[in-house]
Design a protein around this nucleic acid. Sequence first.
DNA 1: CGCCTAGTTGAGGTAAGTCAATTCACGTGG
DNA 2: CCACGTGAATTGACTTACCTCAACTAGGCG
Lengths: 242, 242
Amino acid sequence: MIENTPIVRKLGAFVALSDPELSVLASLHKRRRTFVAGRDLVHQGQSDQAAYILASGWACSYKLLEDGQRQIVDFQIPGDFLGLRSVLLYVSDHSIEPVTDIEVTEIHVADLLDAFARTPRLATAFLWVASRDEAMVVEHLVDVGRRNAAERTAHFLLELGSRLALVGMGSREGYGCPLTQYHLADALGLSAVHVNRVLRQLRESGLVTFRDAHVEFHDYGRLADFANFDPEYLDHAGPVLA
Amino acid sequence: MIENTPIVRKLGAFVALSDPELSVLASLHKRRRTFVAGRDLVHQGQSDQAAYILASGWACSYKLLEDGQRQIVDFQIPGDFLGLRSVLLYVSDHSIEPVTDIEVTEIHVADLLDAFARTPRLATAFLWVASRDEAMVVEHLVDVGRRNAAERTAHFLLELGSRLALVGMGSREGYGCPLTQYHLADALGLSAVHVNRVLRQLRESGLVTFRDAHVEFHDYGRLADFANFDPEYLDHAGPVLA
DNA sequence: CGCCTAGTTGAGGTAAGTCAATTCACGTGG
DNA sequence: CCACGTGAATTGACTTACCTCAACTAGGCG
C-alpha cells in the first residue's frame, strides 16, 4: 500500500486513484528538501525544472512591482503545490517565499509529463488541482476588488481557515497562523498600518482575534455573515471521477 | 487534415499535436450555439455538464456579491474557453455573460474526460491552457491590489491588446473593444465615474484613447512604461512539449 | 545592553467613491 | 416626424476609506 501523503489525500478527493496510479505518483517524489523562512525558493523570471509539494510549514507566492510594492497571490499550506504553474509555463511569473521554515518534496517536470503520458487519470487529477487553485485566486480577486478592508480581512481569514480545516490544521474555533501583519497587508492590497486598525476593529467587535500567531474565531456564524463568506465553497462531494 | 480552429492554434502552440490527437480534439466539438449579448450563459452555483469554446464575440466571467456589486474576473475572446473550471469543479463558482452576441461550440464533460484518457497529451495541453488562464487572473489581481486607477486601467488595456494580438484581432496601434465603461469599472474594481475620469486623463496625456468601441494606443512604448507593462509576458517560445 | 522586527496609535493628506445633473445617440411608438 | 425613454458617457461638488508619516512600545536575541 502507498503511504497516505497530503498530495495523495488531495488528488484522491477528486479522482479515485488505483494502486498503479498511486505508485506512479509516489515515484514522482524526489529529494526531500528544506528551506528557511524568508529566503525565496523561486524568483520571478526564473526558468524552472522542478516544482515542489509542501510537506510542512507555510509559504507564499507573490509578484513584485518595479516600485517595490508587492502583491501576495496566495499562501500555501501543507499538501499544496509550489511552482506548478511556473513549470508548465516554463518561466516563473512569480516568486515564492517560505513564511516559516518549510519541508518540501521535489518533482521534476520531465517526470511529471512522463507520468501524465502513462497514467492519464493523473493528468486529469492535476487539472482539477489547478482549477481549484485558480478558484482560490479568483476569490482573492473578488476580495481585493470589491470588498472593503474589514470584510476583506475577515473573508480572507475565514478562507484560510477553511483550507486549513481540510488538512486538519484548523477548525471553527481558529487556527495557528504564522503570518505577520505585513504579509496580510501585501495579500489584501492594504497598508500594514491599516491592517492593524482593521484587526483591532474586528477584535473589538467580538468577531476574530489575530494575535500571537493565532487566529481565534469568537463567533464564526456572525463573522461569516459579516464577511459574506460561504463556508461551503471549497467543499466537494467526493471523487468526481470514479 | 484537421481544420485550423482557434483552439487548435492555441493548444498547438504548447503541444505539437499529432493527427490522431487533432481528430480527437475535433470530435469534442458538438453543437454550435449562439447567445445574445447580456443574457448569461452560466449562473453562479449552476451545475454544468458542458463547457464552451468561444468562436466569435466577447464574453466575461464574473462573480456577484450579495450587495449587488460585481467583480469581473476575466474577459474571453475568440479561442478562449468558457466554463472549463466550472466543469472540472462540478459547480460553477461564477457567472458568464456575453458582452456581444457570441458564437460558441459546446463540449461535454464526459467527452472531455474520455479524450484525456485516450490521448494524454491532450490532457497536458489543457493543463497548460488552465495555467495560462490562471496567470492572467494573477496579473489581474496584481492590477487591482497594487496599482492606482490610472496605471491599472492602462495595464489592463495593454494586456487585453496583447491577448487580442495573439489571435490577430489587435496590434500596437489598437483594437476594437465592445466593452462599456461599466464593464471596465467592474473588472478594475473602480466606480464607473472614476473610470471615466481616468480614461480622460489617459487620453489627455496622449497615451490611449478608449472611445466608440475602439482602443487606440497613441504611444505604445510610453504607455507600456507608464503602466509598468511587460509586453512579452504572454509570449512563449513555441511548443514546449515536442 | 542595545538593536531589530512586529505591532500600535495619532494626525493629516489624497485617491477614489457617491450623488446628482447634463448630454448624446439610439430606438420605438404615437 | 417628433416625443419619449433608455443606456452610455461626462462633469461638478462633496464625502470617505484608506494611505503616509511619524512616534512610540514590547519582545527576542546576539
